[in-house]
Simulated scan of single mutants.
Amino acid sequence: MGRKKGRDISGWVVIDKPAGVTSTSVVGKVRWAFDAKKAGHAGTLDPAATGVLAVALGEATKTVPYVTDALKSYRFQVRLGAATTTDDAEGKVIETSELRPTDVEIEEALKAFRGDIEQVPPQFSAVKVEGERAYDLAREGEVMDLAARPLWVESLDFVARPDRDTVELEMVCGKGGYVRSIARDLGRALGCLGHVLWLRRDWAGPFRAEEGLSLDEIDRLARTPELENHLLPLEYGLADLPEVRATAEGAVRLSHGNPGQVIARDVEFGEEAWASFEGRAVAVGRYMGGELHPARVFNTAGS
């Protein structure tokens, strides 16, 4: 096999994704624009959704799980009175209702969707069913009995009621949340049915949509030094983990995948942390009292 094409470049790029494109296509465009050897993203957005999509290049892809696990904020509108096949406006309407709840009734119903909840993914989702994606089976007309999954909802707030058919909400949640499921289940709880009209992810972990590049900017700046000014250090992906500082000898050992000496403050024994040396991430692992036992090692020498 030949050598994989592209540069050894590492870091994060924040994109403000427009509607109408897939997360995978955005990653492909960013990878091309930077001529990067490796790229990935931290959390899929549906094609119709907009907002922050954090793209990792090179060694930063090793920090993707930590951003995926971080809290995320969504603003969205729910269209009341209709259920669809996809739980959003892209799908076919399958049931309607003339009932419309009051604002007070909506506020009361939202209480059941906060904290630790169980959520069934949409039929059109990337959940795997016997090795196949649910959305592929759904396109073939199959109706699946998908298992409920736990979700932490930090907050779910009533924002506005533009008209009797529409309510705007804002949610902060943990990993694996489906806004479409929230809209579907809220509509059912209110007895009026519902689906997502539009959806925007405002932030994900340390990344903010307002700081993101548009795809037009990516096209305009592609393969130029100016584009690299928008590359954030891979350490951004470790923002939710405590930092420990490796000694010179510890950094060498950690870089080879061995436990290495570190200096730590306010880090609990056994807690996951990342080790830095001279301002750069060396490894992520468990702090074991004076040493870090690495689980992931970063090689940014060629970046």
Rank of each mutant, 00 (worst) to 15 (best):
R220F: 03
S125Q: 09
S181I: 09
E140V: 07
E211D: 01
L137C: 06
V129N: 07
N229F: 11
L227S: 09
P150W: 01
E217G: 03
R200L: 04
F207C: 00
V127D: 08
E118W: 14
D216V: 10
S125L: 11
R180P: 04
A126N: 12
L213H: 05
Q123P: 04
W198D: 06
F158I: 02
A204G: 14
W203D: 03
R161V: 05
Q119N: 11
L227C: 07
R188D: 13
R201V: 07
P122K: 05
P121A: 11
Q123E: 07
P206L: 08
T166H: 07
L215E: 03
V153E: 03
L156Y: 02
L186Q: 08
D136A: 15
R114C: 13
R223A: 13
D216G: 12
V127Q: 06
H195S: 10
D136S: 15
D202A: 15
M171T: 11
M171G: 00
L193W: 09
G177C: 01
W203M: 03
E168P: 00
D136N: 15
L169H: 00
G194Q: 05
R164C: 14
I218P: 00
P225N: 02
D216E: 15
G176Y: 09
E154M: 14
R133H: 10
V153N: 05
V153D: 01
P150H: 06
V129I: 14
M144S: 09
P206D: 12
G177A: 03
I117F: 01
E154L: 06
